[in-house]
Amino acid sequence: MITSIFSKSKPINFIIVFFITLLAFVMARFGLETSWSNAYVVIEEGGLFMVCFASILLVNFIVNKNSLSKKSNYEILLFSLFLLTLTQTTNNVNILLSNFFVLLGLRRVISLRSKIELNKKLFDAAFWFAIAALFYFWAILFFVLILISLILYRDGELKHWVIPFTGVASVFVITMGASVVFFDDFFGAFTSFPEFSFNFNSYNSASYIIAITILLSFGIWSSLFYINSIKEKKKAFRVSFKTILVAAIIGFAIVFLAPVKDGSEFLFLFAPLAIIIANYIEIIDEKWFREIFLGVLIILPFVLLML
C-alpha cells in the first residue's frame, strides 16, 4: 500500500512530500525564540522553507533526468522523511544554502554522461561547489566528484582537468572583489573557514542515537545492494550511479569533520542517501519486506518527535 503510492510519479506524491517538509520545518522551530509578528522574519523563514522544498525538487529532477531510478518518487519521500527525522537540518541557514548549491553542482557533474558541452558543465559544477563552500567550507569536498568523474570516464584531455580549477578560481576572485567593494578588505566576505571537530558528545541523546543508527544502518545495507546493482546498469549510466555513491561518502566525511555537530551537517548526506535507498527499495522482490522497510523509515520520524 505505502510503496504503491510512490512507485509511480504522481502529483499527489509532491503534495505529500510538501506537507512532510513543512512539518519538519515547523517542528524544528518549536522552542526557538522566533518573532513571527516580524514581517522580515516571516519572509526569511518562508524563503528558507522554499530552499528546503526546492532542494527536494532538484533531487527529483536529477534522478529523472539521468535515469537514476525507475521513475518512482521514493527519493523525494525519503529526503522529506530524513528532514523530519533530523529536523535540525532545516535550522542552519548556511548549510541549507550550501547544500542547495551542492545539488546544482551535482546535477552538472552527473550530466557529464551526455558528453555534450563538457567545458561548460565542468566549469559550472566547480563554480556551484565553490559557491557552496562560501556558505559552508567543507562543501568544497564535493569538488572531488568532478575529478573522480573525469577518472571514471577516462578523460585524458588536459583542458578538462584545468577548467574545474578555473571555476573555483572565478568564485574566489569575484568574492575578493565583492569584499573590497563592501568591506574594504580582500577577505571580508569570506565567512566560512576550514575548522573541524571530532567531538561527538552532542549526539549523545536518545533521539540522535536512534535516528543516526537507523539512517546509517539502512544506508549501509542499501549501499551493499546498490554497489552490486551498478554492474547491471547500462554502461552509459554506470558512472552516474558511482558518482552518487561517492557523494554519499563525501557527505559522511562532512558529518565527521563538521566543527559544530548539531545535526544540521547531515543534510549533505540526505540526497545521495535517498537515491541509494530508493534504488534498493525498487529492487526488493518481496512486497511485504518492501512495505516494512519503507514503513520503518516513515514511522521513525514520528516516533522521534514524541521523545
Rank of each mutant, 00 (worst) to 15 (best):
I2V: 01
S9A: 13
K10I: 14
F18R: 02
F18V: 01
A24K: 11
L32D: 07
E33C: 02
T34L: 15
W36H: 09
V42W: 09
M50C: 01
V51D: 01
A54S: 07
L58G: 04
N64A: 13
L68A: 12
K70W: 10
S72R: 13
S72V: 11
Y74S: 05
E75A: 09
I76E: 00
I76R: 00
I76V: 01
L78C: 02
Q88I: 14
N92S: 13
N99L: 05
F100K: 08
F100V: 01
I110Y: 14
L112A: 11
L112Y: 13
E117K: 14
E117V: 03
E117D: 15
L118H: 06
L122F: 07
F123T: 12
A125P: 10
A133Q: 04
L134K: 12
F135H: 11
F135P: 09
I140G: 03
L145Q: 05
I146R: 09
I148V: 15
L158W: 10
L158V: 11
P164V: 10
F165K: 08
G167H: 12
S179D: 05
A189F: 10
A189T: 00
E195P: 05
N199W: 01
Y203R: 05
S205T: 15
I209A: 11
A211L: 06
G219C: 03
W221G: 01
K234Q: 12
K234G: 09
K234F: 04
K242D: 03
I244G: 02
A258S: 14
E265H: 15
F266R: 08
L269Y: 15
P272H: 04
I276Q: 04
I284S: 00
D285F: 05
K287Y: 06
L294T: 11
G295K: 09
V303W: 08
L307R: 08
